[in-house]
Amino acid sequence: MSFQIFAHYYDEIMDQSVYDSWLRYVEKYTNGEKGLNLMDLACGTGKIAVQLAKKGHHVTGIDLSDEMLAVAYNRMLEEKTTLTLAVGDMRALEPMGDYDVITCFSDSLCYLANEEEVLSAFKGVSENLSDTGVFLFDVHSLYQVNEVFPGYQYIYQDEKGAFLWESFEGESENSVEHDLTFFVATEANPELFERYAEYHRERTYPLAVYRRLLQEAGFSDVTVTADFGDAEVAEDSKRWFFACKK
């Protein structure tokens, strides 16, 4: 899985209002406190991590992609704030301390290949979470993966290039495959474009499976909602939001 080109387009194609919604979701569980120790797992380009740091929290951003972290580092400098950024694999998360809040948003857990990898991620989070801490994450719902994504197409273009996103039903149960094509203007001649391609696979599971894996990882108090915690889960909810405590 490569994010080399995707990292540079990620913030352009993301609905910017979604980041505000994720932040509000986190704030529901910080109770207005400042100076909390937060880990943003799969932090990507650091947009959420930087905003949490600007709110006065001590933030550690973890991501598997060097390219994503490079964008996050530049954002940190531009926003004149400070946070810790580190390369890390959520499937093998090392003990890093007792965090008050650990987040994992933008369906990042859906990139894990199977239940065993999801369980490993949950266990790593549990080991890094304080006894009174909360683990917040979202995943694609079954409806999103099986009904919305197959046949989905999206096109974005600007003066620097163009981006085509096509989604197809995956080979595994409750999975989807994304075919990403980029046309990027060359530095030597802005009228010439180079083509790049990336392939992303995502998978989700029934709510009962997530609950079972969370329980195996040591979480006994799990709340599941939709719409960033503002609605109950429905058959056509596109994302599920989890708030988990030990």
Rank of each mutant, 00 (worst) to 15 (best):
D158V: 08
E171G: 06
A188Q: 11
L180W: 06
L164F: 12
F163H: 11
F163S: 01
Y152N: 07
H178K: 07
E166A: 11
E171A: 02
E166C: 01
G170T: 07
S175H: 07
Q157V: 00
T181I: 09
V184Y: 04
W165G: 04
E171Q: 12
Y152A: 09
D179Y: 15
E171K: 14
V184E: 15
S167V: 12
A188R: 07
T181A: 12
E171N: 08
Q153C: 14
Y156E: 11
A188I: 02
Q153N: 11
F168Y: 13
E159R: 09
E159Y: 02
T181Q: 07
Q153S: 09
T186M: 11
S167F: 00
G161K: 07
E171M: 10
F168S: 12
I155V: 10
S172C: 10
G161Q: 06
E169D: 06
E166D: 13
Y156S: 06
E169T: 10
I155N: 06
A188Y: 04
Q157K: 09
I155H: 04
A162E: 03
L164V: 14
D158M: 04
W165A: 06
T181M: 13
D158F: 03
E187V: 13
G170Q: 14
Q153I: 09
N174G: 05
E187H: 05
S172H: 09
V184G: 11
F168L: 13
F163K: 04
Q157I: 00
F163C: 05
L180G: 01
N174P: 03
S172T: 06
W165H: 06
F163T: 06
E171Y: 10
N174L: 01
F168V: 04
G170C: 10
S172M: 09
F163L: 13
S172R: 11
S167H: 03
T186I: 04
E173F: 02
G161Y: 07
G161S: 05
E171H: 12
W165I: 05
Y152E: 02
E177P: 03
N174I: 03
S172I: 00
A162F: 12
Y152M: 11
E177F: 12
G161T: 00
N174Y: 08
Y156M: 00
I155F: 06
S172K: 12
E166G: 02
E187R: 13
Q157W: 05
Q157Y: 08
Y152F: 13
S172W: 01
S172F: 08
E177C: 05
G161R: 04
E166I: 03
E187P: 04
G161P: 08
Q157S: 09
E177S: 08
Y156Q: 10
L164T: 05
T181K: 09
E173R: 09
E187M: 09
E169V: 02
A185W: 11
V176W: 06
Y152H: 07
Q153P: 01
D179H: 15
H178P: 02
N174S: 10
Y154W: 10
S167R: 00
D179F: 14
